[in-house]
Design a protein around this nucleic acid. Structure first.
Length: 408
RNA sequence: GCCCGGAUAGGGUAGUGGUCAUCCUCUGGGACUGUGGAUCCCAGGAGCCGGGUUCGAAUCCCGGUCCGGGCCCCA
């Protein structure tokens, strides 16, 4: 019987991998241009790392298991916790701020649907050590530049959880209230506030959630220090980062302390969020010093689905041999050192079949490695233009130089 | 975890309770051992899995698996 892929996993064929690598390259280059350096953490961690961060409830949503020694482990469902664990374990004396980026697969035990898989990839950054608005500005700008460079149609919402937390300060079930606000479940919220004898703040919460700028929010709720947001929004505006203030973005977990932001793309159905981020304080939870951090995670697979990216390929040549495979391999080596991809027949095919194969794999050149070699030459046929000429082995690099880096 | 819809060669499909099944594409070979794409010929390859109904099931029923859409969740 045939073995199928496990539910929620995917195979990536060469065309798709080329596209994914091209997207990946854009993300890496932009992050590196901001001074971020790549990190990588284990695929599995102690389960406790994730329950500390997200509560016992997540055990049902992740791949958790016991190893042969009885250790409780879990495949990572996200990367912020592992990176902060790494920071606490071995980076706490490095010069701050630290700028890390990552691109890794993560695993969640959930019902797969469009844009949601059980194994998926996250690209993200963490900027560790600053609690100033400049750090939020930098991280938001970075995410924004990445999605712009990939020609994604998206909207950026930026908010601050401190504002709603402040309004809700006398509500005992604050987390539940935040979840209701996040879902915009106003009826549920009204009921909760009534239960708690806080019905009078209901209108304030709604108006804050719907406030379109700082002035509006200040009118509704003056008892909050808006200067942090003013600095942040000022930077974003000056740097041409287009966003909508959205004070209704809520997070149920209390290590999110300040700025939060999300990006939504078109064309993804129900799973339209392609990026989420904000500032948080996690390192204390993991037994380290309480260090402020800011970061984001981009849903790599979703971005691949909706972005458009240029795919650069080197020219591809098929070496046509005439039964002498050593000669063919030698010529292929020379082509490779001239910077192009060289493919040799390993099927024992005749010349017509070799050319037919070259056509079917969309090769750019056919290089005949036959009797011309005795004169130190090969015959090169450009399969795009049909032109062919004999080229000296010494001039291969020169012949192909015009075709390199031309993209396709 | 819940609701809805699907599943026939690698990909796309046709059909019927009654000889182990259509066509396209694909893959390999040949016509054709120094020039491809076309054409022709040959070959390869399939009814998701398990159970039930039936003389007989790929077809009908049930369960499971996987896929798609939505809900829950979204750290």
């Amino acid at each position: 019987m045939k073995i199928e892929r496990p539910r929620g996993t995917r195979d990536f064929l060469p065309d798709e991998m080329e596209r994914r690598r091209a997207v990946e390259r854009v993300m890496r280059e932009i992050a590196e241009s901001f001074g971020y350096r790549e990190v990588s953490t284990p695929t599995f961690e102690h389960l406790e790392l994730f329950t500390l961060k997200s509560g016992q409830g997540i055990v049902e949503e992740i791949y958790a298991f016991r190893d042969k020694s009885g250790r409780e482990l879990a495949l990572r469902p996200e990367l912020t916790a592992p990176v902060m664990r790494m920071f606490v374990n071995e980076c706490s004396v490095m010069p701050r701020p630290l700028r890390f980026y990552y691109l890794s697969n993560c695993f969640r035990y959930e019902r797969p649907q469009k844009g949601r898989y059980r194994e998926f990839w996250q690209f993200g950054v963490e900027l560790i050590g600053s609690d100033r608005p400049e750090s939020d500005a930098e991280v938001i700008m970075l995410a924004y530049r990445i999605l712009k460079s990939l020609n994604v149609n998206f909207k950026l919402h930026v908010g601050h959880v401190g504002l709603l937390r402040d309004v809700l300060s006398d509500v005992s079930e604050k987390d539940r209230a935040m979840r209701l606000i996040d879902k915009k479940d106003w009826e549920g919220l009204r009921a909760l506030l009534k239960e708690e004898g806080q019905a009078d703040i209901f209108d304030t919460v709604i108006e804050i959630s719907e406030a379109s700028d700082v002035e509006k929010a200040r009118e509704v709720y003056p008892d909050f220090d808006y200067s942090y947001l003013e600095v942040l929004f000022g930077i974003l505006e000056e740097m041409d980062v287009r966003f909508v203030p959205d004070f209704g973005i809520a997070r149920g977990l209390d290590y999110y302390t300040g700025v939060v932001f999300e990006m939504y793309a078109e064309g993804l159905g129900a799973q339209k969020q392609v990026c989420g981020g904000g500032s948080y304080r996690l390192s204390g939870l993991f037994g380290g010093e309480d260090v402020p951090s800011t970061g984001f995670a981009i849903g790599f697979d979703r971005v691949v689905q909706v972005c458009s990216v240029e795919i650069l390929r080197k020219p591809k040549a098929v070496v046509v041999g005439f039964g002498d495979s050593i000669r063919a391999f030698r010529v292929a080596e020379m082509l490779r050192s001239a910077g192009i991809h060289a493919i040799v027949d390993v099927m024992g095919r005749n010349v017509k079949k070799q050319l037919s194969y070259a056509d079917s794999i969309k090769a750019d050149f056919a290089v005949f490695a036959g009797d011309e070699l005795e004169r130190g030459q090969v015959r090169i046929k450009n399969l795009r233009t049909q032109e062919q000429e004999d080229v000296s082995l010494k001039d291969l690099r020169g012949y192909f130089s015009g075709f390199l880096n031309s993209g396709s």
